[in-house]
Amino acid sequence: MKSNPYAAIQSKYESFPKVSRRIADFILENPERVCSISIQQMARELDIAESSIIRFCKQIDCSGFSEMKLLLAKYAPQSIHTIFEDLSETDTVTSITKNVFGRNIDTLQRALDLLDFEKVEQATALMSQAKRIVALGVGASGSIASDFYIRLMRVGIQAEAFTDSHLMQIAASQAGPETVFFGITHTGKTREIVTALELARSRGAKTISMTGYPDTPVKRVSDICMELYSPLQLFVSPRVAQVTLLDSLYVSLSIRQKNQVVENIQKMNDALADFRLS
C-alpha cells in the first residue's frame, strides 16, 4: 500500500534540500490546486525545473507526478480537516477536545502508513534475544523511556531506564554484548542519547533508537533506527505515536514468551493485592 504523501512530506521535511522544501510548502498550502494542474504549470509557478518535481515525488515514495496527485487527492479530505484546521478562542471545550482527538488519530494513521515494519520486526528480535534492555531518554522522552521500562518489568523482562545524562553514560560504559540499549529522541539530535548509544555500541551492546526524523545523528550510532511520523503542528504531540509503537514492541515481546509472561503477571498481581483498596 502506498504511503500517505502528506505524512511523508511532514516526516521528511527537515531533511529536504531548499528546492524540495519550496515544493513541499506549495503542496501543503495548495493541495487541491496541485491535484488539478500539470507538472509544467507547477514548474512555471515555482520557477523550477520539472526534473526537480519528479525528484521530489521520488523523495516521498511516489513513482511520478501523476501518482503523487492521485495520492494527494485520496488523502486530502482527512488531512486538511485534522492537520490544517486552526483552533480559535471561540472554540468550545467540546470542539477543541474533538479536534485534539482527531489530530491524534490522524497522527497514528500517518505514523502507521510510514512505519517500516521490517525495522520493527528486527527490533523485536534483537530485544527478545537480550538479557537486559536499557531505555534512555531525557525531557519528555525520559518519561516515555521510564514507561517502557515499567511495562517490560511488569512481565518479567529484565530492564532499566535512565533519564539522567551522567547515569546513562555510566550505564553505557559498562554495557556488554548481551544488552540492548534503546534510545528515544524525538529530534534524533539529543547529545546525551547519541553519545550514550555510541559508547554502549563500542562496548559490544546492540543499539536501537526511535526518532521523529530521518537521517539524524542517532541513526548513525544505532543498529536499528525506527523513524516515526512527526507532526509539525503546535499542540499535536508525537508522544501518542511513540507510546503506541512501544506498546506494540512490548506486546510482541510478551507474546514470544507467553507462558512465562502470564506467570509473571500473576506474581505481580499477588504482590500488589494488599496495596489495592476494596
Rank of each mutant, 00 (worst) to 15 (best):
A171F: 08
G176D: 14
P5E: 04
K74C: 07
G204C: 08
S209N: 07
E29D: 15
M168T: 10
D47I: 00
S202T: 12
F65L: 01
N104F: 14
E85P: 09
A24C: 02
P177W: 03
C62A: 15
S165C: 10
E227A: 04
D147F: 12
I60L: 07
I48F: 13
R220G: 04
R276K: 11
R110P: 04
E85D: 11
Q242C: 07
D164L: 01
E67I: 11
Q40M: 10
S141W: 02
I265L: 13
S11H: 07
Q78C: 10
S63D: 11
F235C: 02
N4I: 13
N104H: 15
S128P: 10
L28G: 04
V218G: 03
E121Q: 13
A140V: 15
A111N: 00
G142Q: 10
F117I: 15
D164G: 02
S254D: 02
L277F: 05
A111T: 15
H166L: 14
S63F: 05
D113R: 03
S79M: 09
A7I: 05
L232V: 09
T207E: 04
Q233N: 11
T124E: 08
V194K: 06
L71A: 08
K267A: 06
I9Y: 06
V262P: 01
T92V: 02
S141Q: 07
P31T: 12
H81R: 12
R151S: 12
F16V: 09
V155Q: 12
S202F: 08
L246F: 07
L228A: 00
S20H: 14
I53K: 03
P5S: 10
Y149V: 11
D47T: 06
T211H: 03
S278T: 11
T211S: 10
P5V: 13
V194R: 02
V19Y: 05
